[in-house]
């Protein structure tokens, strides 16, 4: 049952800011296994988002290796990375990042468009994903006709629709009140129970408490890595 999805070795990311070199990640090592539910914590500026972008294939490391499902991603080109994002990664953002003028359904269809799924199949998959997050009665609503919690659930449906290996959530409850946050955490628990691997960034301890493993970053390095007793 220890099926490795993510294998990260000496992952380093540096930014050149004029004359100054900002070292956001200073050699991260970690492995994440199938159906884990991981929270990444750490103070602001510790490199959580940088790590998430790297894992999500939005960015490539300055140094080190990143293996995703046995494929080395760290050396891939732009188009290959786009394909990996499309198939393997589902993103959930703090600010939802839905297309404002598109319906919930169309928002969820987006990853399917880039997967080349068309017509009825696309709509069926998208509405299936929406009902998984309990929004089958909101398919034609636009983001501004939905509450914050509902918007985030549309975003989760969008992240799930391509059946990705990992669900990546960077501060998914950062823009939500505590009741709504709990609602979203319930959705995550359900998905996890159905076998979804989840990696979530948060700085709130009570949100992190939902995860089964907590990795803490400090100054671009793994500070602690604790698994909850099952």
């Amino acid at each position: 049952m220890t099926d490795t999805i993510i294998e990260v070795r000496n992952l380093t990311r540096e930014y050149q800011m004029g004359a100054e070199l900002v070292r956001a990640l200073r050699g991260v090592d970690m492995s994440i296994y199938r159906n884990e539910y991981v929270a990444i914590m750490g103070p602001s500026g510790s490199g959580k988002s940088t790590l998430m972008n790297m894992i999500g294939c939005l960015d490539t490391p300055t140094e080190g290796e990143y293996w995703l499902n046995g494929l080395e991603v760290s050396t891939m080109g732009d188009d290959a990375l786009a394909r990996v994002r499309n198939r393997e990664i589902g993103f959930v953002f703090q600010t939802f990042n839905l297309l404002p003028r598109a319906s919930a359904l169309h928002n969820v269809e987006l990853p399917l468009i880039y997967a080349g799924v068309s017509g009825r199949t696309r709509r069926e998959h998208a509405s299936g994903a929406l009902s998984r997050v309990g929004l089958s009665d909101r398919v034609d609503h636009r983001p501004n006709e939905l509450s914050g919690g509902q918007r985030q659930r549309v975003a989760i449906a969008r992240a799930l629709v391509n059946e990705p290996s990992i669900l990546l959530a960077d501060e998914p409850t950062g823009n939500l009140d505590s009741t709504t946050s709990e609602e979203i955490m319930t959705v995550f628990e359900e998905l996890h129970a159905q076998g979804q691997t989840i990696i979530m960034v948060t700085h709130e301890a009570d949100i992190a408490a939902h995860a089964h493993r907590v990795i803490t970053l400090r100054d671009g390095r793994v500070h602690s890595d604790t698994k909850k007793a099952a």
Binding site: L58, D79, N97, L110
Partner: peptide, 16 residues
Amino acid sequence: TREIGVRKAMGATRRE
């Protein structure tokens, strides 16, 4: 710009 970022995150290639 943000929409473009979202589309890329969802798997849109440069070409698309």
